[in-house]
């Protein structure tokens, strides 16, 4: 009944004609998906990616170190990102990281970023470790760090002495060598303000206070007497114990 109207239809192209004897008249083509389904598809891809990221982030940090709802860390590029208006990261200090300049006998000298609770040993490991194994003897690896600190790892002592025989206070711009031998200690009774500032936690103000106290009351006899300077407590003294001397022959002043 319907086939008799087929003469009205324009002749089909040659390649569209079916093979003789083929019963089914089916053709496979491509049709654009509905616009809203495509929107849903795009959103689903993004949501799946985010979901996977959060899931694997949690798996990798079972103690919940994937900080949901907290600020992101800008790593070493904190300053750059903070200038880059659209992509401002946050202050690294809020997340407990500090930057320390490590140079001297380490594999990769330069500025490294470590946790605020890190110690000198952690900073040296971040800088690639000691260049020579014997250098470890010249450094107090347990000392605490503060932001912006400069750590100078001195060369290990040859048979005749320590390094080139130069004390940290005599090295221009040198910071903390953390050397335990007596000749590497800072003589608190003769050191100037710049040398005292190389001690951990000592800034210009505290160095000036130490010198003022020394000028007013005479030389420090031992470590405990240094505690009489305003702002210096037992914890600070404990940190300085291996770094100070109080005259020839008394490395720690009997402390």
């Amino acid at each position: 009944m319907q086939d008799r109207h087929l003469w009205l239809v324009e002749p089909e192209p040659e390649h569209d004609r079916e093979a003789p004897g083929e019963g089914r008249m089916l053709q496979v083509g491509l049709r654009p998906l509905n616009r809203w389904w495509r929107v849903v598809g795009v959103l689903m891809v993004a949501l799946c990616a985010a979901g996977l990221g959060i899931f694997f982030g949690h798996s990798a940090n079972p103690k919940g170190s994937v900080n949901l709802g907290t600020k992101a860390l800008g790593t070493s590029l904190q300053a750059r990102v903070s200038t880059n208006n659209a992509t401002t990261a946050n202050d690294g200090e809020a997340l407990g990281t500090i930057e320390v300049d490590v140079h001297g006998d380490v594999r990769r000298p330069g500025v490294v970023q470590v946790l605020s609770t890190a110690r000198v040993g952690d900073a040296i490991r971040a800088a690639g470790g000691f260049l020579h194994a014997a250098d470890a003897a010249t450094v107090n690896q347990a000392a605490l760090l503060w932001d912006g600190e400069e750590i100078d790892v001195l060369a290990s002592a040859p048979a005749g002495g320590i390094g080139d025989g130069t004390a940290p206070s005599q090295i221009p711009g040198a910071a903390r060598g953390f050397a335990s031998p007596t000749s590497m200690r800072i003589d608190v009774n003769t050191a100037d303000a710049a040398t005292l500032e190389t001690l951990p936690g000592v800034g210009p103000k505290r160095a000036a206070e130490i010198i003022a106290y020394r000028t007013a009351h005479g030389p420090f006899a031992n470590l405990q007497s240094l505690g009489q300077v305003r702002g210096i407590g037992p914890k600070t003294l404990a940190k300085w114990q291996s770094l100070l001397s109080f005259g020839v022959g008394s490395p720690a002043g009997g402390a």
Partner: peptide, 16 residues
């Protein structure tokens, strides 16, 4: 994947 979703064309079977 998202760009492909945006240009997605699905196959369909047309009954001639």
């Amino acid at each position: 994947a998202m760009a492909c979703c945006r240009r997605l064309h699905l196959p369909y079977i047309a009954n001639r």
